[in-house]
Design a protein around this nucleic acid. Sequence first.
DNA 1: TCTGGGGTCCTAGGACCC
DNA 2: TCTGGGGTCCTAGGACCC
Length: 423
Amino acid sequence: MPKSYALIDCNNFYASCERAFRPDLVGRPVVVLSNNDGCVIARSNEAKDMGVPMGAPYYKCRSMLERRGVAVFSSNYALYGDMSARVMKILTRFCPEVEIYSIDEAFCDLTGIQGGAEAFGRKLRATVHAWTGIPVSVGVGPTKTLAKLANRFAKKQERCRGVFDFGASPAPDLVLQWTEIGDVWGIGPRHAKRLRKMGVTNALKFRELKRNWVKKKMTVAGLQTLLELRGWPCLDFAMGPVGKKTIVSSRSFGHPVTSLEDMLEATAKYMTRAVEKLRKQRSVASIIHVSLETNRFKLGEPQYSDTLSIPLAISTSHTPTFIRAAQAGMERLFKEGYTYKKCGVMLSGLEPEHGRWLNLLALPPAHRPSDKPLMQAVDNCNTKWGRDTVAFAASGIRQGWKMKREMRSPRYTTVWDEILQVG
DNA sequence: TCTGGGGTCCTAGGACCC
DNA sequence: TCTGGGGTCCTAGGACCC
């Protein structure tokens, strides 16, 4: 039986989340900023129509946004994560086979669905909107890449009213022709530029290219895109949570950092967060990477950035072990005389917590029997009473480097004190 | 003053081994 | 004048995604 996939994508997700709790903002332009209120990362349709570009530095468009009455928010990931979970839960109710692809997107396997894909899509869209306030678009196609394409078409073409089934279209090639080459899933700016130069300006023209040429110039990833556009499924459908292979925690500082002390505090803090994520997916890690960088936009200042990898003697998820190693690494990386903008840590060599290889030669101080309950107790406290209820002293108290989020909306759905008040 | 953060996969080329 | 060849593993860097 031919496959049928739906891609459900939340429209302007972060902006829609802000709006879900602020009905006064319906019809008004809304933008959401990145960490540190750095740049624009989400825009409502009204803001897009005003020409606010994605990724625009906030300081450059701030006065324009104010002048035109745009509602501006710092990012509120607690809210977005929770809203995402609600949307995904609804999808799972309607369709047992769901692959959560990102915070605002999921694929559903509709193969063999009764009553037609479009009707299914309409029902899903109406339900998600009614239950969460989030508008979604639904695209359906015989491969994931075509479902993506259909989704874009549904979103951009008014007459689709949010749902488009590629398979039921009388003229699917026109949709391919309509899709600009850079908007094809899997074709990034580099390849798009080169293809355009050759006259391959849309998805239909790309589909006509020779397999061998595409494989040679764009590797197997490009070949998969080609075949998927031809209707051959190449990309797997992955249900259930997939454990990450690397875990990153890195952030720009709220203020420039010049001292080693601040750098070590931030390193401890980010490492704490990374290892929390590690335990959450029930994994252990064996390699640490630390990195730092100066502000690459300040052309006049001396620039320096570097990363360092540190193998641990044993795989673990014990936070103090990671903090010690990461700070030692950061001390080696740090050079006086530079003004730093950002640092980060990454964990790799991840394995499941149970059934991992043990290094028989290494002394395992990180695995005294008491360590695991300790970490568990820390996690429990922080889950119950909020992040950083229990923290590590190495992260410091002052935290002068902490990021700025001056326009964050209340965490309506995850913190009792910030719940929406009526009346 | 002010420019995000977190991921995956592929390939080429070097190191190393026999 | 004039290099051996072939395999595996690892890493850095590139390209892509949201």
